[in-house]
Design a protein around this nucleic acid. Structure first.
Lengths: 232, 232
DNA sequence: GAAATAGTGTCTCTTAGACACTATTTC
DNA sequence: GAAATAGTGTCTAAGAGACACTATTTC
């Protein structure tokens, strides 16, 4: 916790090394949001994706986890490499190379970030360094591609959830609406969730049955969930 | 051409930098093969994936192209980044970090490599440094994933080809058999090829009509080719 | 009752994959 | 004719997506 707000501590202007850049995504209200760090550069406010130099001997994923922990005070629920970026575009660390990561954070953990950090809707990012903008763009793509194969959406939900919760999470991450009946059929076919004997009422409307994530081990290469567009 | 056989020229033991590792794949006969470089290390023969240090100011893809050109004397037909690797495993450059690329090379270009280079079946690689083995493994995955969306198979064929040629190339790259009728239906739906008024006889059997790669511009996000298993 | 949300049944259309066939060549 | 390869027609099963419906709650 003491590390919070000092995300850039190790990210000097070391020309020889490289930076680790960590795009953290969280569902904030109805928006898929990105964690940005506010820096003051000669009196001007600048936003950056959290980054730092790697530590000697540290694996890339470990370093990305460390940077995420420094920013969040907690581990992201999922974290994966996006790639290496050295296109000559501007980066605040001054390094020629950056290795990008993307991770997701559940909303409750996301809300407890420090003063100089903020969640900004991915659809309305402020100006950030060009190389980092590319990392964010590709990071969003990585999440959307991986969504079918990794339990990213589940990791953002509490242990029990309704199928409407789950569908909304998928829709938020994908940035598009899904077809309700089809979503549920696919979920059933994928054997990913298990109903529990519990219902939750949101005030208005029929109470929703709750489920928990319980993937069937039988089919490993089976696609997780298949999606349809739009929906009633 | 003068560069050939000096692939490792820039790949010293610079702890501070990183290496660019280029996995080159080619269809050699019936085998999908990887280009390896033979080095002598204290009298022992060692095989490595071509690698070098990047040049200052050079974009990653440019560097990978340069390394491929040095090894092949030609550009690969397709080249894409695999990712960054710094897992602490062994790498001949001695760097902590490597950025991996994967590319493909048509057979005719592939056959003209120098003495200290050789094409080895991907299914039967010799011992290579652990980090490079991982880059090869992930590189093969990248090719297979991209095959649906990038004209990789076409880039490995001459301008005109039979549909059986094309299917065989897909099968080689994917490492599995495809279903003939389904392959052709998918190809038709994807509007990727155009028949030309020319046939080719292989000696035995009915002559095959020749086609050329002619993607329809209309549907950009349409999946390139959809595949089925096995086949008559 | 209306409004809101959860959940389902059924229809159509597309496609993967199997199967079996026809077509055209060399021997 | 047989063998080999190219190419196609049809059937089935699965799945996507639309549509409309039923079910259960609050107001």
């Amino acid at each position: 916790m003491a590390e919070r707000g000092r995300t850039q501590a190790g990210g000097g202007r070391r020309r020889g090394g490289f930076s680790l850049d960590v795009v953290l995504l969280a569902p904030i209200g109805e928006e898929l949001s990105v964690l940005l760090h506010r820096e003051l550069d000669r009196g001007r406010e600048r936003w950056t994706v959290p980054y730092e130099a790697p530590l000697p001997g540290e694996a890339l994923l470990e370093g990305a986890q460390r940077i995420a922990r420094a920013a969040l005070g907690a581990e992201p629920a999922w974290l994966e490499q996006v790639g290496a970026f050295a296109d000559g575009r501007r980066h605040p660390a001054g390094t020629e190379l950056s290795v990008g990561f993307v991770g997701v954070v559940p909303q409750d953990l996301a809300l407890a970030v420090g003063d100089d950090l903020g969640w900004v809707a991915a659809s309305a990012l402020p100006a950030i360094p060009a190389r980092q903008r590319e990392i964010v763009r590709q990071g969003l793509d990585v999440v959307r591609v991986r969504l079918d194969h990794a339990p990213i959406a589940f990791s953002l939900l509490p242990p029990t959830f309704s199928l409407s919760d789950l569908q909304q999470m998928y829709e938020l991450l994908l940035g598009r609406r899904l077809h309700k009946a089809s979503f549920r059929r696919s979920l059933q076919a994928a054997e990913l969730v298990e109903p529990i004997d519990e219902w939750r009422s949101e005030g208005r409307g029929r109470p929703a049955q709750l489920f928990r994530y319980a993937p069937s081990r039988k089919r490993k290469d089976r696609r997780a969930v298949r999606f349809d567009l739009l929906g009633g």
